[in-house]
């Protein structure tokens, strides 16, 4: 799970560095982004998909039992707070440092985070996953 988050952050950092052309040639930047994206996909599949956690958080409520509804709701409640704080920090950072509009990669990262934060919370709190 940690590898997944690190890969996501690293891909984002190298995207921004390559975009602004800070100390890294374009070919190296894109190669590193590709490597981190590959790590991201592999770790996503092995941590979230194979464990069944992704399915648990994305199932319809009527297909969950009462305990599952309780744990998923709890995870979503915590992740909502984390997500809102993350979005606010990013928006403020862009505004304070005059980085312009949030680009599509950051928007996609936020969308990905919105989906994996509840799943990550479940991975920490659930003793049994299937």
């Amino acid at each position: 799970m940690l590898i997944n988050y690190i890969a996501l952050i690293m891909a984002l950092i190298f995207f921004e560095l390559t975009k602004y052309g800070v100390g890294i040639p374009h070919w190296a930047g894109f190669s590193l982004i590709g490597v981190f994206l590959l790590i991201l996909i592999i770790s996503f599949v092995s941590v979230y998909v194979k464990s069944g956690l992704w399915r648990l958080t994305h199932k319809k409520t009527e297909n969950l039992d009462e305990r599952e509804i309780q744990v998923v709701t709890h995870a979503i409640r915590i992740s909502y707070t984390i997500f809102v704080i993350t979005v606010i920090v990013i928006v403020y950072l862009f505004a304070i440092f005059g980085l312009g509009a949030i680009d599509v990669v950051i928007a996609a990262t936020l969308l990905y985070l919105a989906h994996i934060i509840p799943t990550s919370i479940l991975a920490w709190t659930e003793k049994e996953v299937y």
């Binding site: 969950l64 039992d65 009462e66 305990r67 599952e68 003793k127 049994e128 299937y130």
Partner: peptide
Amino acid sequence: IGVNFQTVGY
């Protein structure tokens, strides 16, 4: 009883 088998464990 209409629950997931893990819930029985819990």
